[in-house]
Simulated assay, not measured.
Amino acid sequence: MKTLSFSLIIPFFLIAHHVLAQSGNPAILRSELIYEQAPFPECHASTLAETPKGLVAAWFGGTHERHPDVGIWVSSQTGTNWTTPIEVATGVQPDGKRLPCWNPVLFQVPGAELILFYKVGPSPSTWWGLLKRSTDGGKTWSAAERLPDGILGPIKNKPVLLASGALLCPTSSEDHNWRVHFERTSDWGKTWQKTAPINDGINDGAIQPSILFYPNGQLQALCRSQRSGFILETWSKDDGKTWSPLQKTTLPNPNSGTDAVTLKDGRQVLVYNPTSPVMGKSGPRTPLDIAISNDGKTWKTLAVLENEPGEYSYPAVIQTADGLVHVTYTWKRQRIKHVVLDPKKG
Rank of each mutant, 00 (worst) to 15 (best):
F230P: 04
P215N: 05
Q108W: 03
H64F: 12
N294A: 10
A57Y: 10
T126W: 05
F12P: 03
F230H: 09
L130S: 13
S172Q: 08
A45C: 04
A38G: 12
D136N: 15
G61I: 07
F13E: 13
R285S: 07
S256M: 08
T140C: 01
I231M: 10
L33S: 10
T249L: 05
K158M: 11
H326Q: 15
S31T: 11
P197M: 11
Q247W: 05
G150D: 11
K332L: 11
L263F: 00
S76T: 11
A21W: 01
P284R: 09
P315Y: 00
N294Y: 12
D149E: 15
F230M: 14
S123D: 15
S225W: 07
R133I: 13
V269N: 03
V327Q: 04
L212G: 06
N25Y: 03
A196T: 13
K332D: 14
T320S: 15
E233L: 08
T80G: 10
T328G: 02
S173H: 12
S5R: 13
G96A: 04
Q108N: 01
I115T: 09
R98Y: 00
V19G: 01
L20P: 12
S173Q: 14
T140N: 10
F6G: 07
W178E: 14
S293W: 02
P315D: 04
Q247F: 05
L20M: 14
S5L: 13
F12T: 14
D238W: 06
W331K: 02
M1K: 08
G150F: 03
T242P: 10
N199H: 09
R66F: 14
L341K: 00
P315M: 01
P26S: 07
Q247V: 13
C101F: 04
I290Y: 08
Q220T: 14
P215A: 11
K297A: 08
T63N: 09
A143V: 04
R179L: 03
K332A: 08
L246S: 09
P284T: 03
W178P: 00
Q226A: 14
P85V: 01
N273Y: 08
P287D: 08
A196N: 13
V325G: 02
D200F: 02
N25S: 13
I10N: 12
N157I: 04
G111F: 09
W141T: 03
L8P: 02
P11V: 00
I86H: 11
L168A: 06
S228Y: 08
I34H: 06
W192A: 05
I207A: 06
A58Y: 00
Q247H: 11
C169W: 12
S276E: 15
T195M: 12
D322K: 03
T63G: 11
L219A: 10
A316W: 04
V327W: 04
P68M: 07
V271M: 11
A166I: 10
S186R: 11
W102F: 15
I34D: 07
W102T: 01
D200R: 00
Q334A: 11
